[in-house]
């Protein structure tokens, strides 16, 4: 039976660390699909101007295209070249919520993320996406240091 691992990407070094660890796990497991998820932070409750609303659909398409082109597709292609089974998903919303939701929807065995890059005041007030994921996830989470 093929299992799958959801890997949180952020287009940064921490996403790469998570991916490297997930590759190690996948190799050890044999048949394993890697699902790379890139979340574009988005709140349906943020305030937007009328002009921003009018072009929102276009902007959304551009954001998804940019995320796929710059982060997700190169990573998926690199994994496939190395012989891994992999695919990518780009979503808008809350990072912690969506990583968990994708994992549940896809029946993934676990989620692999790297330690969050947030710090300072924001971290103290709101916590981090990684900490939120660990607290609320309904599937096992591995946090790479």
């Amino acid at each position: 039976m093929t299992t799958s691992i959801v890997v949180g990407l952020d287009g940064d070094g921490s996403g790469k660390r998570a991916l490297d660890f997930a590759k190690t796990l996948a190799k050890a497991m044999g048949t394993c699909e890697l699902i790379l998820v890139y979340v574009i932070e988005w709140s349906p409750y943020s305030f937007q101007t009328a002009e921003e609303n009018a072009v929102r659909h276009k902007r959304r398409e551009e954001e998804i295209h940019a995320a796929l082109e710059r982060v997700v597709t190169p990573s998926v292609e690199a994994l496939q070249k190395e012989g891994f089974s992999a695919r990518g998903i780009v979503r808008h919303g809350d990072v912690a919520d969506l990583l968990n939701k994708v994992a549940v929807d896809e029946g993934a065995g676990q989620i692999v993320v790297a330690r969050s890059s947030e710090g300072g005041f924001v971290k103290r007030v709101f916590g981090t996406a990684t900490a939120n994921l660990v607290m609320h996830a309904t599937v096992p989470v591995t946090v790479v240091g």
């Binding site: 349906p44 943020s46 305030f47 937007q48 929102r56 659909h57 919303g93």
Partner: peptide, 16 residues
Amino acid sequence: DPNDAGEVSHFQALAT
């Protein structure tokens, strides 16, 4: 619809 996330939400249209 969760697949529409990132589009203008009802809340945002009302707030605007």
